[in-house]
Simulated scan of single mutants.
Amino acid sequence: MDGLEGSPVGVQVPLYQAKAEFFRMLGHPVRIRVLELLADGPTPVRQLLAAIEVEPSNLSQQLAVLRRSGIVTATRDGSTVVYALAGGDVAELMRAARRILTEMLTGREELLAELREAEASSALPR
C-alpha cells in the first residue's frame, strides 16, 4: 500500500481522490486541535495532552495517524517526545479554514438578523 488507504502500490490515484483521503485524515477534532497547537511551534506531548484534555491513549492514536501521514514529525529529547508540523503549509491550511468558517458564520449571522427582522415586522399589527 502507498500512503492512501485502499490503494495498492503502483496504482495511480486521481488528485481529487488523494485530496479526499487527505481531508478524511484531517477529519477528527483531536487531530485538528493538535495541528492548531503545533502551528505555534514544536510542542511536547505532555503540553498537548494538557491543552486537549483527552485520554493519553486517544491522543497517542491521533498523533500516530498524523505522523504516518507525514503531516507531523516527532523527535525525542530524553524521555520527552516533541511533535512539530512537517511544513508550514499545514499551519496555513488551519488559518485558511478559520477564515472560511468565519466568513460562513458571518453570513449566517446576517441571514439570522434578516430573518428576525422579517419575523418582527410580520408580527406587527397592520
Rank of each mutant, 00 (worst) to 15 (best):
R98I: 02
I52M: 03
H28E: 10
A120Y: 12
V45R: 12
E55V: 07
E5I: 03
F23P: 06
R95G: 04
R31C: 08
L66I: 04
G3Q: 04
G107K: 01
L59T: 07
L59M: 09
V65W: 08
L15K: 10
V54L: 07
V34N: 09
D40K: 07
I71M: 06
V13S: 13
S79T: 03
M104S: 04
Y16M: 10
L37Y: 08
R76K: 11
E119Y: 04
V81G: 03
V54G: 06
E36Y: 05
Q12L: 15
R95K: 14
A20R: 14
A123V: 03
P56K: 08
T75H: 06
P125Q: 09
G70D: 00
R67A: 01
V54I: 12
A113W: 00
E114M: 13
A113Q: 09
L37D: 14
A84I: 01
L35Y: 15
Q62R: 13
G3H: 12
E103L: 09
S69D: 00
R116V: 04
M94G: 03
E5P: 00
Q62V: 04
R68G: 06
G27H: 04
R108H: 14
E21Q: 14
E21C: 10
R126P: 15
T75V: 14
D40F: 07
G87V: 00
Q47A: 06
